[in-house]
Simulated scan of single mutants.
Amino acid sequence: MKAFFNPTVWEQEWKEYRDGAAARMRRSGIDPATAFNAKAQKFNEQSFNEEGRKRSTRIVNWLESRGVNFKGASVLDVGAASGVFTVPFAERGANVTAFESSPPQVELLKRNTARFTENKVEIVSGQFEEINIRQKGWDRAFDLVFVSMCPVVHDWDSVEHILSCARKFAYISMPVSSSENSLVNEVTPLITGRPFEAKVTEMGYLLHLLCLKGCAYETLVTRELKTTEHTHKEALEEAMMWLRHHDLPADERSRSIVEEHLKRNYPEDKVQVHQGGRFGKVLIRLEDQSMYVGE
């Protein structure tokens, strides 16, 4: 029982955890830093369509309701992609440093933020884990450090790297359970003989260590789903990737089963896939830690 209250034990357990997003990507032969290179354009479209903008607005509104003021604030957006949050931050008056490792995403980010001249967006690329915070001048430099669904969060050391940049707030969002995919749900029983079962993920390590480390924070867990449309070929490759991510059989037999399932159930070469899951959002208060600050 003593180990439950020992942060050193939890730090080591998280470091050795093998089912985090970054670890699963690497097992699938995917570099987390460039995982979205091939999907950059599609991800950009999904980020800025009506549904994508609504998702971003809900998060930004929640942050403002918790006391984050974007007008004139300095924000570090880690894993900025093509600007899904950088853009609304800048629209609300923030000065944003957008950090992104994927070259195709960086090009889209430049295009999407070119219109901001008064509240400029600075774009930085590279590997966030390799940034020397002090040399970069980022030590406690930002009112808000924002990290949404980014594999740079993979152990407590990576969390401390993020917190070291923040002056007032740090926001981290992560999956609470393994991601859901309607197509994977359909084909998993055909491949394994049993239904797909979502697993609880590393969000628990983050929350428990924040508690043990004496941090002031608030969290929100929601279930979010989005719908995308694919051709048979795109859906097949998507399903195979998800099978690998979840350590399910992704061999030629599985590929044949998925192909046959798509032909039989989606004859028009249009496959609607519902994907998402349970996600946790954590706002860490580094300066004003009382719930009465806004009164």
Rank of each mutant, 00 (worst) to 15 (best):
E259T: 11
L262Q: 04
N265Q: 04
S179F: 14
E100V: 00
E197F: 05
D77T: 01
K136V: 01
V68Q: 06
G29Y: 00
S182T: 06
S179L: 15
P151T: 02
N112C: 10
T86E: 05
V273W: 03
T227V: 14
W156H: 04
T8N: 13
L262C: 05
H261C: 11
K281D: 15
V200K: 15
R253M: 12
R92N: 10
Q105A: 10
V9A: 09
G137Q: 05
D157N: 06
F146G: 09
S65N: 12
N265L: 09
E107K: 08
A38L: 11
R26P: 05
P104C: 04
R167K: 14
G193F: 11
V106E: 01
P103A: 02
E202Q: 08
L225M: 14
D247H: 14
N6F: 05
N61L: 13
H246D: 14
W242G: 00
E118A: 13
R26A: 12
G280E: 12
V9P: 01
R278H: 11
E122F: 08
V187Y: 09
T227M: 13
Y266K: 09
A40N: 07
V271G: 06
I133F: 02
G83D: 10
W62V: 04
K281Y: 15
T201P: 03
V9I: 10
M1G: 11
P175C: 03
M25W: 02
A22T: 08
V147Y: 03
D288C: 10
P88C: 11
P189I: 07
L144Y: 06
A239H: 03
W138C: 07
S102P: 06
R194V: 03
A23E: 15
V282S: 11
F116Y: 12
E130S: 14
L243M: 05
K213R: 14
S47K: 06
V187R: 07
E197S: 09
S177K: 14
K136R: 12
K15I: 02
K233G: 03
